[in-house]
Amino acid sequence: MLRSGLAALTVALAVGAAWYALRPALRADPAPGPVPRLAHSLPYGLFGLAAGTLATLAGRQDPYAVIVLTLSMGPAEWLLYRYRGLAVAALRASASPAGFRLRAARALLVCVAAYLAPIAASTPLIDTPPAQLLALGAVLWTALLLQAFGVAWSSAALCLGAAATATALPHVSSLPAATAQLAGCTAAASALLAAAVRHLGRPTAHA
Rank of each mutant, 00 (worst) to 15 (best):
L109Y: 10
A17L: 14
S4K: 12
S122V: 13
C185K: 00
G52C: 08
L134F: 06
L57V: 05
L57A: 03
L200Y: 06
G33I: 13
S190R: 01
S174R: 12
F100C: 02
P170I: 03
P176F: 04
V68W: 01
G16R: 09
V112Y: 00
L79N: 01
V88H: 14
L38Y: 14
S190I: 15
P75W: 08
A114G: 07
I67N: 05
Y20A: 15
A65F: 02
T167D: 05
L42P: 04
A168C: 14
A50E: 04
R92A: 13
A58E: 01
S155L: 03
C159H: 02
T56C: 07
L49G: 10
A189Q: 01
A98Y: 02
T142E: 04
P124D: 09
L57D: 01
P203R: 13
A135S: 11
A195T: 14
V35K: 12
A194N: 07
V197W: 07
T56H: 10
Y20L: 14
G59I: 05
W78M: 13
H199Q: 13
A98P: 00
G5V: 11
D29I: 06
Y115G: 01
S122F: 15
A168G: 06
Y83Q: 14
A65D: 02
P129E: 12
F100D: 00
H40Q: 15
D62N: 08
S41R: 12
A168V: 15
G150I: 10
L9S: 14
S155I: 00
A105P: 00
G99D: 13
F100V: 03
A12P: 05
L71Q: 08
F100H: 03
A18S: 09
L46W: 07
H40I: 09
T165I: 13
V11F: 10
L102G: 06
P32N: 13
A191Q: 05
L80P: 00
R92P: 00
V88A: 11
P118G: 07
Q132L: 14
A87Q: 05
L54N: 01
G201L: 05
C185D: 09
L69D: 01
W153L: 09
L2T: 12
R92K: 09
L133G: 00
A17S: 12
R198M: 09
A156K: 01
Q147H: 12
L193W: 06
P75F: 10
L193D: 03
V11G: 02
L46S: 06
S154C: 07
A7K: 10
A195R: 11
L125A: 15
A135Q: 00
P176M: 02
R60T: 12
L69N: 01
A114S: 13
V197P: 00
V66S: 07
Y44C: 04
A76V: 01
A90L: 03
P36I: 13
L2S: 08
T123Q: 07
P30L: 14
T56V: 12
A76D: 05
Q132D: 11
L22D: 13
V66C: 09
I119V: 15
Q132T: 15
V197Y: 05
R37C: 08
A121L: 15
T128A: 11
A55V: 15
Y20S: 13
H40E: 15
V68H: 03
L86C: 04
L26Y: 10
A93H: 07
L109K: 08
